[in-house]
Simulated scan of single mutants.
Amino acid sequence: MTVVSSESGVLHVPAGEGLVKWMSGDVLTFKATKAETNGSLAFMEALVPPGGGPVAHLHPHSDEAFYLIDGALEFLDGERTFIAEPGSFVYIPRNHRHRFKNLEKTDARLVFLFTPAGPEDLFLEGADDPIPGQRPENWTPERFARLTDIVERTGDIMLPEGR
């Protein structure tokens, strides 16, 4: 990740810069992690393809917030769902079951953050490095199963729908 900072401690990640990871079809660009913010927050940009998005889950130690730039996403809020469109802001308090899913035919683009930082370790450690000239593929259940140790360490809890 290209990071520009000053002696004052300011973090500046230029446009088009940041560590990129692929996770089950999603393209994640890290603008700030706990390493750069002393654990205060993590901030990412995401490109979510049609059908993409995480399984329902909760973060017991962090709040999460989203700002939708392009496309539309269906959010799960406990047991209800709603649609977020460009310009929508969504705040998820810790210990609240949620997920988002792209139900459209085009990619959705959003930014999101965790405060305090920590849940981003799942992406940093468990996601794939990009392959130039290709698009990420959706993962199989077996591929997701390789994340169990990281999920346990971050304390996140997966709560799939239909259970």
Rank of each mutant, 00 (worst) to 15 (best):
M1T: 06
V3A: 12
V4D: 15
S5A: 07
S5H: 06
E7P: 05
E7A: 13
S8E: 14
V10W: 11
H12S: 07
V13I: 15
P14Q: 11
G16K: 08
G16V: 09
S24T: 00
G25D: 02
V27H: 01
K31G: 01
T33A: 07
T33I: 06
K34P: 08
K34F: 12
T37C: 05
G39H: 14
L41N: 04
F43M: 09
P49V: 02
P50T: 14
G51T: 11
P54N: 10
V55D: 10
A56S: 05
A56I: 00
H57N: 06
H61S: 09
A65N: 01
A65Y: 03
Y67S: 09
L68N: 02
D70C: 05
G71I: 12
G71S: 15
A72Q: 14
L76R: 04
G78L: 08
E79R: 01
R80C: 01
E85L: 09
G87R: 03
G87K: 05
S88N: 09
F89M: 14
V90G: 09
Y91S: 06
R94K: 08
R99L: 07
R99D: 13
F100E: 10
F100D: 11
N102D: 10
K105M: 12
R109M: 06
F112W: 13
T115E: 12
P119E: 11
P119W: 02
E120M: 11
L124F: 01
E125L: 15
E125F: 13
E125D: 10
D128Q: 06
D128E: 14
P130S: 15
P130C: 13
I131G: 01
P132C: 15
G133T: 04
R135V: 00
E137T: 12
N138W: 07
N138Q: 14
W139L: 04
T140G: 11
E142T: 15
F144G: 09
A145M: 15
R146Q: 10
L147Q: 05
I150M: 05
E152S: 09
R153K: 06
D156T: 10
D156Q: 14
L159K: 10
E161C: 03
G162R: 08
